[in-house]
Design a protein around this nucleic acid. Sequence first.
DNA 1: CCACCCGTTCGACATTGTCGAATCAGCCGC
DNA 2: GCGGCTGATTCGACAATGTCGAACGGGTGG
Lengths: 254, 254
Amino acid sequence: MPGPIQSIERAAAILRLLARGSGRLGLGDVAASLDLPKGTTHGILRTLQGVGFVEQDHTSGHYRLGAALLHLGTSYLDANELRSRAINWADTLAARSGEAVRIGTPLDGSVLVVHHVFRPDDTPQILDVGSLLPMHATALGKVLLAYDAELAARIRRAELTSLTRRTIVEPAALARVLGQVRTAGWASEAEECMPGEASIAAPIRAPGGLVVAAIGISGPVDRICAPSSTPAPELVRDVHDAARAVSRDLMTDG
Amino acid sequence: MPGPIQSIERAAAILRLLARGSGRLGLGDVAASLDLPKGTTHGILRTLQGVGFVEQDHTSGHYRLGAALLHLGTSYLDANELRSRAINWADTLAARSGEAVRIGTPLDGSVLVVHHVFRPDDTPQILDVGSLLPMHATALGKVLLAYDAELAARIRRAELTSLTRRTIVEPAALARVLGQVRTAGWASEAEECMPGEASIAAPIRAPGGLVVAAIGISGPVDRICAPSSTPAPELVRDVHDAARAVSRDLMTDG
DNA sequence: CCACCCGTTCGACATTGTCGAATCAGCCGC
DNA sequence: GCGGCTGATTCGACAATGTCGAACGGGTGG
């Protein structure tokens, strides 16, 4: 296995770094963060600038992500088989449950939101397609973890950051929950990611049975978790049915 | 000027190619399209796969864009100074005009939509942030062309594709229109891009006076172009005011 | 006016990516 | 069920390519 191309890997690392920092970074910062000589970093940065993946502030010299990436990102969405199949089912799930719907895929130890349907009421909401959600504190993430041993192993090595008082931070506790997810076929979460918010999710399977994504709803904890503190059974059923419908849709073609 | 890094340029070319095809491509297709040996292409593709920029269909072996690009794309939006400043003004413009608002930036000879506010009525609309619009057939594009000599020169060499019966395809006619845009300070278009649709746009200037983007509205031609066939003066004023407001907002800081 | 910081340039080295042919797997037609 | 094909993947040798570190230059703040 002759190694991957390092200049490309370094370029990708720079792009990820710029995406994290969510702002412009100087050449020195980039070089220091990646332990690269300034000259090398500059060469990569200039190339990335040439192809439109990064832009440079002409006054400060700082670098930021470039416009070409936005187009590539939406091109990814357009070509995404999963998303195009799931859109209709997501809409019906939102209408039936009255809650916001999200579809997530694993990316780099987090959950990437690839589709988002607003809650049907008229409250102002922000579109978070493209956002990263924590794996261990969301229903979507728990589903993905439960059905992917490799992901679960990676998470086990990572630090489970606490987002609220109820976030699961004990690896053993998380493992137990994941086992329950596997037997039940769905996952839930209540105030583990954001106070007052709860969510339910179920797995989406590609042809072959592999879990490639998860679909779920999220909303106020007192609506998601019925009278008791457990998720409302009819909502669980709605989510589960939607997930099965999408999975079935994915089966029926090449 | 020691040349840009070729492996990165080739990787970018592959990504752009995958974005165009809007579907999965085989290794052979990619290699042929870029005049590269299959072995080389495979190495780059494998590296891109490793960093999540492309994914591979395990059954057919075809390649498609990867999920990491989606996150980079939205990270670009989050870090985008122009967009964050413009959001509020775009909302007020949409409310005042009653039409859909778009903000566009030049990308590679086209207009990249970086922000999109839906028309205030409840008609179903699709978000086209990240889409590419033709330069010569949209008000946004005309504005960008009028104030950027380099872009205008490039467009002059390109073929002006006809989208509707009214699309401007004569380079001389386009040049005349661009001159009018420069003197008027705004651009318009009626059924040159889509039948029944018209649009108005004005330039957004960065500190220094350089035109870096355009903001505009679009809607049914009978609402945009008042009784006569020319754009409604009050809409033109609204767009122009919004553009000035955003530009002023960009001035007032570093 | 000087000193510092930071982006940029340059040239030599050897590491790194490139190339083309050989291999392997899957698919269709026979 | 068996050949021939298309298309993805592997391999190894060559040299072109990217890497590195030091020196340059412009801008800013003291």
